[in-house]
Amino acid sequence: MMHTAELLEFFKKHRGDAVVIPGRGGRHWVPISDKPSLDLPMGDPAMGGHAGFGLGVALAQPKRKVVLFDSEGDVLMSLGMLVTIAEQAPKNFYHFMLDNACYATTGGQPVPNAENVDYAAIARGAGYGRAHAFTEIEDFKRELPAILDKPGPVFVALRVYPEVQNEPIGKRRPWQTRTKQETIDDMRRELQIKA
């Protein structure tokens, strides 16, 4: 099993100029990233939607790699999204999924059938041409460069330690440093996109 912060730290070395949507890894990614204007840490607008948001950005910016760190809870909530992504098949879309096997932000309750789901198999079945699964950091480090060098869409399931949050939402330390609108505006400026 891997620590989210450690795998994101390693990923940073290989991101290049990719747009990164850190999803539920946002609280780790924001302090790590050295290219915040290319990050879209949206927090949790509505569960199950990160993959769609990533797909939309990837389709809109086909010359730019778009890397998403989704979660297994989000993916389970929108399994049909994998079919849409596979059909659109954006070559610039890299769909990573942080699998902590639980709903960490609500106290750590297990997701349904938590220990028995093969997410990479589901992605392949949905039509992704490539799908991987890693549980050990050394395997992830070894394969990541090749994964990012090849065209997408690719799905990568990453088994991570749960970092359960038990305190009430209102008492949690905020990790976002910009509003959602500011993050989008910053990316648009960086990529010279007209609003």
């Binding site: 509505a46 948001f53 950005v57 809109a60 049909g80 989008i184 990316m187 648009r188």
Partner: peptide, 13 residues
């Protein structure tokens, strides 16, 4: 699903 996809498309121009 259409909502988050549309949001991403719009964010991307």
């Amino acid at each position: 699903h259409a909502c988050s996809i549309a949001a991403g498309l719009s964010a991307g121009g």
